[in-house]
C-alpha cells in the first residue's frame, strides 16, 4: 500500500496555508514577527494613557441638578486597597517586578517603568474611589467586602489569568451595587421643600436619608462604566515583563 506524496500530505494537511506578509499584526501574526516598536508603544505610551484616563475619570461625578463636574478625591482606604491590589498583581505574576525595575537597566528605563507602575497604582486607587459608595452605611458595607476579598486573595494561590478574572468580577459587582442598585434607590432632587419631596416619593426619599446616599446625575454611571472598562483593558494589556513579549 504505497501512498503517493500527495496522498501523504492530504492525511495531515486539511487546510490551505496562507503565508503571512512580513510585519502582519494582530492575533494571527507570529509573536516573533511583531515589530518590537509596536510593543514599546503599547507598553510605554498606550498603557500609561489608559491608566491616566482612569485616574482622571475615576473620581468624576456629575451634579444631579445642573450636571456640573464634581471631582471626588479618593479616601485613604482607597490607597490602602490599591496597595494591596498591586501586591496581589506582583504575587500572581501579572507584574514581574524584577523585569520592570532592575539596577542593571538604564536609569531612563527604570524611571519610565516606575512611572507606568505609578499610573497603575493611581488608576487602581481611582477605580476603588469610583465603585465605593461615598458615605453612610453603604460605604462601610462595600468597603468591608472589598477588604474581605482582598485579604482572602492575599493568601490564595493565583495565576495572572485567574487574578484578572477575580478582580474584574469584584469591580463589576461593586459597580452594579453602586450605580444600578443604590443609584435606583436614590431620590432625584425635586423642586420644593423636604416635605414636598417626601409626599412625592416617600420610599426613595426615606432610603436616601437612611442610607445617606448622595444625589448625582445619571451620567456619572456612564462615565464610571467607561472608566472601569478602560481599567480592565489596561490590566489585560499590562505585560508581566515590560518591553518583552508577554
Amino acid at each position: 500500500m504505497k501512498q503517493t506524496a500527495e496522498q501523504k500530505a492530504a492525511d495531515f494537511v486539511d487546510a490551505e496555508i496562507i503565508p503571512l506578509e512580513k510585519g502582519t499584526l494582530g492575533p494571527h501574526a507570529p509573536a516573533e514577527s511583531r515589530p518590537k516598536d509596536s510593543r514599546g508603544v503599547k507598553d510605554y505610551v498606550i498603557l500609561p494613557l489608559l491608566f491616566l484616563a482612569v485616574t482622571l475619570l475615576g473620581g468624576l461625578r456629575f451634579g444631579a441638578a445642573d450636571n456640573a463636574f464634581l471631582f471626588i478625591k479618593p479616601d485613604l482606604i482607597c490607597l490602602v486597597y490599591s496597595a494591596i491590589l498591586l501586591l496581589l498583581f506582583v504575587r500572581a505574576g501579572l507584574v514581574r517586578l524584577n523585569s520592570w525595575l532592575d539596577e542593571d537597566f538604564a536609569l531612563l528605563r527604570n524611571v519610565a517603568n516606575a512611572g507606568i507602575l505609578l499610573t497603575l497604582f493611581a488608576a487602581s486607587t481611582q477605580v476603588f474611589n469610583s465603585v465605593l459608595p461615598e458615605q453612610g452605611i453603604a460605604f462601610w458595607v462595600v468597603a468591608f467586602f472589598f477588604f474581605w476579598t482582598l485579604w482572602n486573595n492575599l493568601f490564595a494561590e493565583f495565576d495572572a489569568r485567574k487574578l484578572l478574572r477575580s478582580v474584574g468580577a469584584m469591580f463589576a459587582l461593586a459597580f452594579v451595587a453602586k450605580y444600578l442598585v443604590l443609584a435606583n434607590l436614590t431620590a432625584a432632587p425635586a423642586d420644593g421643600g423636604w416635605l414636598a419631596r417626601i409626599f412625592e416619593n416617600p420610599g426613595k426619599e426615606t432610603l436616601t436619608w437612611l442610607l445617606d446616599l448622595p444625589r448625582y446625575g445619571r451620567s456619572s454611571g456612564y462615565v464610571q462604566f467607561f472608566a472601569l472598562s478602560l481599567f480592565l483593558l489596561g490590566l489585560y494589556l499590562t505585560p508581566a515583563r515590560i518591553g518583552e513579549k508577554s
Binding site: D37, G40, V41, Y44, V45, P48, L49, L52, T55, L56, A106, L108, R109, V111, A112, G115, I116, L118, T119, A122
Partner: peptide
C-alpha cells in the same frame, strides 16, 4: 519612547 512615556506620565499627573 522612554522619554515620551515619562513626559506623558508627568504631564498626566
Amino acid at each position: 519612547i522612554h522619554i515620551l512615556s515619562i513626559a506623558i506620565v508627568a504631564a498626566g499627573f
